[in-house]
């Protein structure tokens, strides 16, 4: 039947388009989502599972993503929901010290490595309500408005939390700096 053939070829065209959209999403966002997930759970394996699960769900619901520009907050919302499910299933604290020294080995000197570890440690110490907006801003490049939408908060609250997060880090890191200088005397 010609009608049947037409709908068959339409199916193939639609699937090819859907596949291309999906591939693009994966290529564009997997790195940033992985980093965001890693800093939420501080475990590389769990981070990879979270990103995988996020994209699986994204594939199944891809038709509901009408505006490609909304892809980032959409994926982040899925990932945060997945992360919350993980806590419903089992309550673990993954913020142990062993995961502390994860640095980019490609291009850092010893000094940079020490500095990165100190900064990472201080970020890990932030309360979750400050840490998450900061991660969305620094790792995902989200604006205050986008963060407010993703976290379902008003923008002023987000700005206050970003201020507190960065201010705490500023003070903690200058304290660390003084201690380091003191130790090397």
């Amino acid at each position: 039947m010609p009608g049947n053939n037409n709908s068959k070829s339409q199916v193939l065209v639609d699937m090819t388009e859907k596949k291309a959209r999906y591939e693009k999403l994966v290529h564009v966002y997997h790195s940033e989502l992985y980093r965001f997930a890693y800093w939420l759970c501080r475990d590389p394996n769990i981070a990879e599972d979270l990103v995988q699960e996020t994209f699986l769900r994204a594939w199944r619901a891809l038709d509901s993503l009408l505006d490609q520009k909304a892809a980032k907050p959409w994926l982040l919302t899925i990932l945060r929901r997945e992360n919350a499910r993980r806590f419903e299933r089992k309550q673990f604290d993954y913020s142990d010290v062993e995961n502390d020294t994860l640095v980019d080995e490609k291009s850092v000197t010893l000094d940079d490595e020490v500095e990165q570890t100190i900064v990472q440690r201080q970020i890990a110490k932030l309360p979750d309500e400050y840490k998450e907006p900061l991660l969305l801003q620094v790792v995902m490049g989200c604006s205050g408005e986008e963060i407010a939408n993703i976290l379902d908060l008003n923008k002023n609250t987000v700005m206050t939390r970003l201020f507190r997060a960065r201010n705490q880090l500023k003070e903690a890191l200058s304290r660390d700096d003084e201690q380091l200088k003191g130790a090397s005397k």
């Binding site: 992985y34 590389p44 994860l102 640095v103 980019d104 990165q116 900064v119 970020i123 880090l169 890191l173």
Partner: peptide, 14 residues
């Protein structure tokens, strides 16, 4: 400070 945050959070992706 912002640059050092960006660098510290920029961990390698598998």
């Amino acid at each position: 400070l912002d640059d050092s945050l960006t660098q510290a959070l920029d961990i390698p992706v598998p």
